[in-house]
Amino acid sequence: VTTYKLVINGKTLKGETTTKAVDAETAEKAFKQYANDNGVDGVWTYDDATKTFTVTEMV
C-alpha cells in the first residue's frame, strides 16, 4: 500500500489531499471521484516519481 497525493488547482477549490491505495490506478479512481464530488473538472497529470496526481481546471 502506497500513499498518493492529489494537488487540486481548481477555479474555486485549491488544495491537497492524500489517499492510500494498492496502485496508482486505484488512487486515480478515488481522486477522480473526490474531484467529481467537489465539482472539479480539469486536466489530469501524474508524476510517478513523487506519486502525485494534479488536476488543473482551465479558466
Rank of each mutant, 00 (worst) to 15 (best):
L6C: 11
D48R: 08
T54C: 04
N36W: 08
G10Y: 15
G10Q: 07
V40A: 05
V55T: 03
K14E: 13
K29F: 08
M58K: 10
A35R: 01
N38S: 09
F53I: 02
W44D: 00
V40R: 02
K5W: 06
E25F: 06
V7N: 05
D48Q: 09
D48W: 07
G10S: 14
T56I: 11
Y4I: 01
D48P: 10
N38A: 07
E16L: 03
T18W: 14
K11E: 15
A27E: 00
N36H: 13
K14W: 12
F31I: 02
F31A: 02
T3V: 14
V7G: 02
T2W: 10
T26I: 06
G10L: 15
T18D: 14
A30G: 11
V1C: 05
K5V: 08
E28S: 14
Y46L: 02
K20M: 14
V40Q: 03
K5L: 14
N38F: 10
A21M: 04
E57P: 03
K14V: 09
T50Y: 08
Q33C: 05
V1N: 10
F53G: 00
Y34D: 02
T54V: 13
K32L: 13
K29L: 13
N36L: 09
E57K: 02
K14L: 13
V59I: 13
G42H: 02
T2H: 07
K32I: 11
F53S: 00
Y46C: 01
K20V: 15
Y4E: 00
D37E: 14
Y4F: 12
K29D: 12
T56Q: 09
T54Q: 06
T18N: 05
T45R: 06
T52L: 06
V22I: 08
V55G: 00
V7D: 03
V1E: 09
T50E: 08
K14I: 13
Y4P: 00
K14C: 05
A49G: 13
L13F: 15
G15Q: 13
V43P: 04
F53L: 01
N38Q: 13
D37I: 11
V59G: 07
T19G: 04
V43A: 11
A30I: 15
K32V: 14
G39C: 05
G15Y: 14
G39M: 13
A49Y: 09
T3I: 13
N9F: 11
D47W: 04
D37W: 06
T52D: 01
N38W: 13
T17N: 09
N9S: 13
G15V: 15
T45I: 12
V22M: 10
D41Y: 09
D47C: 05
A30E: 13
V1L: 09
D47V: 10
I8T: 04
E25D: 15
Q33N: 12
D47F: 04
A24E: 07
T3C: 07
D48S: 12
Y4D: 00
V1M: 10
T56M: 05
K51N: 10
W44G: 00
A49T: 08
K20Q: 06
G42R: 01
L13V: 14
T26Y: 14
V55A: 03
T52N: 02
T26L: 07
Y4W: 11
G39S: 13
V43E: 13
N38C: 05
L13S: 06
D23A: 05
V22D: 15
T54G: 03
T17G: 07
T3H: 06
M58N: 13
Q33T: 10
T19A: 08
W44F: 05
E16N: 03
A27P: 01
A49I: 14
Y46A: 01
V59W: 09
D48F: 09
V7A: 05
T12M: 09
V22H: 06
K20P: 11
A24D: 09
T50K: 13
A27D: 00
D41Q: 06
K5P: 00
L6S: 01
K5M: 07
T56Y: 08
A24K: 12
D41E: 05
D37R: 07
D48I: 15
V59M: 09
A49E: 09
Q33W: 05
A21C: 04
T45F: 09
Y34W: 06
I8N: 01
I8Q: 02
K32S: 05
N36K: 14
A35L: 07
I8E: 01
K11Y: 15
M58Q: 11
V43N: 08
D48H: 12
Y34F: 11
A30Q: 07
Y4M: 01
D23K: 05
T3G: 04
W44V: 02
A49M: 11
K11H: 14
E57F: 04
K11W: 10
K51D: 03
Y34L: 09
N9L: 14
M58A: 13
T3W: 07
E28M: 10
D37Q: 08
G10K: 05
N9M: 14
N9I: 15
G15T: 15
N36A: 11
A27R: 00
T50S: 15
E16G: 03
K32Y: 10
T26S: 10
V1D: 14
D41C: 05
V7M: 08
E25V: 09
N36Q: 11
F31P: 00
T12V: 15
Y46G: 00
T18L: 14
E25H: 14
L13H: 09
E28I: 09
W44N: 00
T52Y: 02
V43H: 09
V22E: 06
D48T: 06
D23L: 07
D23S: 08
E16A: 03
Y46N: 01
D23I: 03
F53R: 00
E16F: 05
T2R: 13
K29P: 02
E25C: 05
D41G: 09
Y4G: 00
K14F: 10
T45C: 04
K11A: 13
D23H: 04
V40T: 03
N38D: 03
G39Y: 13
T50D: 10
F31S: 01
D47K: 04
K20F: 11
T56N: 13
K20E: 15
V1P: 06
E25A: 13
I8H: 03
K29Q: 13
V43S: 08
K14G: 14
M58L: 13
V43R: 10
K51Q: 11
D48A: 14
D41W: 10
V40I: 15
G39P: 02
T19I: 09
D37H: 09
A30H: 15
D47G: 02
D47Y: 05
K14S: 11
N38H: 12
F53E: 00
L6V: 04
Y34C: 03
T2Y: 11
G10M: 15
D37Y: 10
V59H: 08
A30W: 15
T45S: 11
K20W: 15
A21V: 06
T56A: 06
N38Y: 13
G39T: 06
K14P: 14
F31E: 00
E57G: 03
T45H: 08
L13M: 13
K11P: 15
A49S: 09
N9W: 09
T54N: 04
T2G: 06
V43Y: 07
V22A: 10
E57D: 06
K11I: 15
V43D: 09
D37L: 09
G42E: 01
T52H: 03
T3R: 05
T3P: 05
K51L: 11
A35V: 06
I8W: 15
T19P: 01
F31V: 03
D41K: 07
V59E: 10
A24T: 11
V1A: 12
E16H: 04
T3S: 07
T54E: 08
E16Q: 04
T19D: 03
D41F: 10
Q33K: 14
Y34Q: 03
G10R: 04
T50Q: 14
L13R: 02
T19L: 07
T12C: 08
L13N: 13
V1T: 08
L13G: 08
F31N: 00
N36D: 13
Y4V: 00
A27W: 01
V40S: 03
G10H: 12
D47E: 08
G39R: 10
K51W: 07
D48K: 12
A24P: 08
T2K: 11
E16S: 06
T3Y: 09
A35P: 01
T52R: 04
G10F: 15
V43Q: 08
D23P: 01
A30K: 07
Y46R: 02
N9V: 07
L13Y: 09
E25K: 07
E57I: 04
T26A: 15
E28K: 15
L6G: 01
T45D: 11
T45P: 00
M58H: 11
G42A: 02
V40H: 05
